[in-house]
Every structure is written in structure tokens, then in C-alpha cells.
Design a protein around this nucleic acid. Structure first.
Lengths: 251, 251
DNA sequence: CGAATTCTTGACTAGGTTCAACTCCGGTGG
DNA sequence: CCACCGGAGTTGAACCTAGTCAAGAATTCG
């Protein structure tokens, strides 16, 4: 478990050992929650953020008519809800999509530390920017991709994110999400998730059974769904060389 | 123009006069761009961020098949592309949706200042978190709302955001977006935008003609499209009192 | 082993796309 | 001054993707 935290802290950029120690020192406790439990409720004002150690957590918005949209999914190693650190009230819930374990970070501690460690603050800021980059990718998918493509892209994304924390390898991974969870992420009905999954299965691209996913043909899948992983590979920018303002007609 | 900057800085939270001065000092120059020009290209590594002074800018992702998705829209007073400050390469373009003016902030200056002014850094972080909150709201809309609702919600959002910077009042505002731009934001065809707009017009809720929008019945519109403005009203959290971890079955 | 989810499949429906034609409007040049 | 032009808006008709409803099969869990 500690190795997961190490791996994550490493990915956060080239923090000094000081900063890394500061951050590890913040983790003040552990909590567990069972699948279906809300870690943080919409409308509440949490006093802590958490680092997800095991399991899957979804950001869930519930509509008046009972509809659900999962706007993001966190995998082990992700900070959950750094948003709650700066925002007054939660505009969505954080729900355990499987049994989960989290490490708790008190906002008061987080505030104190970030005021004295600007590089660390920047690393955490970056973490939320990566969230935003994933949000944008999902927006493109929901707005302009068909159902099968959205599903395939999500499977690719999950695989790479899990592989990055050593929870997936050889194009297979465990995934506790139900088809209904997938539907709420992909903005479609669970029936259609099922049908789309069947197409991926019948074309030999992906098998998904009993909570285990096998990507049988990674190359064909990424081509079929036009998956470009670059949005997941975001790192803290170091130097600042680059091109001047671009001027080009797009219309 | 300076009053716009003042208003914006004020909204960023209770910065000290020192911090406010620091931020104003960052604005190193002005640029103009005509509708259709790209301010920042996908794949580039910008060395500056900008504050939008006039006009509208969209974050645009272009698909291989020519499809476009606008994942966010910036109105005057918004910082554009703080993302580019920390991320290595742009995963999308920033395109002027009308003629625009921007104030430029060099990343090197931004970096120096945020390292010595943690509160200011936090205010800018917050700015990107608000972007993310809007992203989530759009995700919910794209995933779970029908076309008319999405359109109505966008009109409500635009009105409130423009009103906050004194560019809208009395439920009317100027909006240079074409129906095709709207389509690319709402993930639908421009034909269907036109039809949805006609429904809003015929039911007496909204008129949109020659770049001018009138919301004829705000109350009815917000009810019709279940618009909840709270996600736009996000402020820097000050104290840190709140409820402990919530435990509730949602399934 | 029985109950409750979850998954699977079929039949029908509806919201939205596509294609195409036509209109409206502002700008431009003869 | 007006005729033309191009971009934006408007509308109809045919088509299609995905949703809904419903029922049965498979899994998991107590």
C-alpha cells in the first residue's frame, strides 16, 4: 500500500524529498467504505480530502428525475476531492463504486502545508488540472462519439490508469463496475451498454466477464475507438520554452 | 476595461491589496484576434496565459472525422488557459469565437509570483476548479439532458456569467455565437439547435436574433430546463467547519 | 437453496441526424 | 443604387441511433 503512495507522489512531479515527506505526513488516518456508500454528500462542506488507496470512487450527480451522471471516476492512487479543499460546498457526491479504502488529509493541514511549500501546492494544483483534462476528454466523447466508441475509450482509459499504478498488466484488469455504472458514466442506458459490450466481444476486441476485463486486441481497439492516450500522460511542465501566439484561420 | 479586471480580481476571493497589485502587475501586454483565429493551438506549449478582456473564446477539440466539440467557453474577465501554465502541451485549441482582446501574462512571471504569494496561487487554483465545476455541469447536461434542456441551460449560464461582469442586464445580452457554435458546445447538429431555439421562441421563453438574446421569462425558463445556478456561485472557502464523513446507502 | 441483482435479448418508440432546398441578411462591387 | 454573393438561419422528409418496456437467464449472496 505504501508503494502505491510512493508511486503516486513520484508521478506528481519532481518534488523535493522535503515536500514528499510533508505530503506523506499529512495522511492522518484511514477509512473504509462499502460499495454504494457516499464518502461525501452533495451540498456538504467536507473538512478533509482523501487519497484513494483501494477500490473505485465516482463523482456522482443525481438529477431530479432520478437520472444519474457519473462525471469522473477515481482509481487507487488518485487524490479525491481536492476540489472540496477550496470550494465552499460540494456540487456532487463522492460514491464508493466498490469497497474502498482511503487515506484522510485534513484541510487545515493541507492549507498550512501548501502555504509554505509552493512547489507542493503546484503539484496538487496540477492534479486537479489532470482531472479537468479528463473531464474535457469525456465531454468530447459524450458530445461527439457514438456509444460503442465511448465505451471502448473508457475501457482504454481505465486500463492505462490502472496500469500506471500496477493494478493492470498484460491487457487485463479487474473492474468491479456494473453495466449500470458504465451507463451512468457514458450517458447511455444500461441496455445499450450491454449491446455495445456484446459488439466489442463479438468482434474479438474486449471480453468483460465477472468483473474481469480482457482487452484481446489493444491495437484494433484503440484504432476502432480513435483512442489517443496523450491526455492521461500529463506532467508538470518544467522549462518554459515554446512557440509564440499562433495565428491561423480555422473557419 | 480596468473595471472589468477589478471586478474579476475581487471575485477571486479576499486577496490582499498586495496580491491584487502583484496580479495586475503581471499583465504584460494586450493582443487582439479576429473571430475564427486560434489563440493557442492544440499540441503547442504556450509560454503565457491570458485574461480575456472582450469577446468570447472557446476551448475546441477537433476530431479526425472533422467533428468539433467546444468543451468550454470563456467570457470577458475569465483567465484563459491557466492549464497551459502547468501542463506540458495543450490537448486542445483556444479559438476566438468573436473578435477578442486579451491581456497577456507570461508563465515565468506567473511562476515567480505564485511561489511567493500562496494566497494568490490558491486564488488561481480556485479559478481552474471553477472551470472544472462547469465542466462537470456540462457533462451532466451532455450525458443526461435532452437537446432543449441543454440549450436552455447554456443560455442561463451565459446570462449569469455575463451579468457577473456587467455585460448583461434585464435578462438580455449580446451574444456573437452562431447556431453552429452552439451545436459544437451542446453536442448536437446545428439543424437541431435551430429547431430547439424555435421551441423556446414559440413558447415565449427566449428570443435570439441578430446576435441579441432576450430571456423573456426567466422563471419559466429555469424551471423548464431545471437550471440550478449554484455551480456558478463558487467562492473560496474560508473557515473549515463542516460535517464529518457521510455514510449512506445510495443503491 | 432461494432471493436479489445483474446481465441478456427482442420488439417497439422517439429524439436527433442527415440531406436538401429555400430564405434572410449584411457586405461588396459594378 | 442595386444586383449579386456568401454565410447564417429555417424548414421539411427520410432515416437511424439509442431509449424504453418487458421478459427470461445467469450470478452472487445470505
Amino acid at each position: 500500500m505504501e508503494s502505491l503512495i510512493d508511486a503516486k507522489l513520484h508521478r506528481l512531479g519532481d518534488l523535493s524529498n522535503d515536500d514528499r515527506g510533508r505530503l506523506e505526513g499529512l495522511l492522518s488516518g484511514r477509512r473504509r467504505a462499502a460499495a454504494g456508500e457516499a464518502l461525501v454528500e452533495e451540498g456538504s462542506r467536507p473538512t478533509f480530502s482523501t487519497l484513494l488507496l483501494s477500490g473505485f470512487v465516482g463523482r456522482v450527480s443525481t438529477l431530479a428525475d432520478g437520472g444519474r451522471q457519473i462525471t469522473a471516476i477515481s482509481v487507487p492512487g488518485d487524490f479525491i476531492d481536492l476540489h472540496g479543499f477550496l470550494l465552499n460546498t460540494m456540487d456532487h457526491s463522492l460514491v464508493a463504486l466498490s469497497d474502498v479504502t482511503v487515506a484522510v488529509v485534513q484541510h487545515t493541514d493541507l492549507k498550512r502545508v501548501t502555504e509554505h511549500a509552493p512547489r507542493l501546492a503546484r503539484a496538487l494544483w496540477l492534479e486537479t488540472l489532470i482531472d479537468a483534462a479528463i473531464h474535457r476528454q469525456w465531454l468530447v466523447a459524450l458530445g461527439r462519439r457514438d456509444a460503442g466508441t465511448r465505451l471502448g475509450q473508457l475501457i482504454c482509459e481505465l486500463y492505462l490508469r490502472l496500469e500506471a499504478v500496477a493494478l493492470a498488466q498484460d491487457h487485463t484488469f479487474q473492474c468491479p463496475l456494473t453495466q449500470s455504472d458504465l451507463a451512468d458514466m457514458l450517458g447511455m442506458s444500461s441496455v445499450h451498454v450491454n449491446r455495445s459490450l456484446k459488439v466489442l466481444r463479438d468482434t474479438g476486441l474486449v471480453r468483460w466477464r465477472n468483473g474481469q476485463v480482457w482487452i484481446d486486441d489493444w491495437t484494433a481497439l484503440t484504432e476502432r475507438v480513435a483512442f489517443d492516450a496523450s491526455y492521461l500522460d500529463l506532467k508538470l511542465s518544467r522549462s518554459s520554452s515554446g512557440a509564440p501566439i499562433a495565428r491561423r484561420r480555422t473557419a
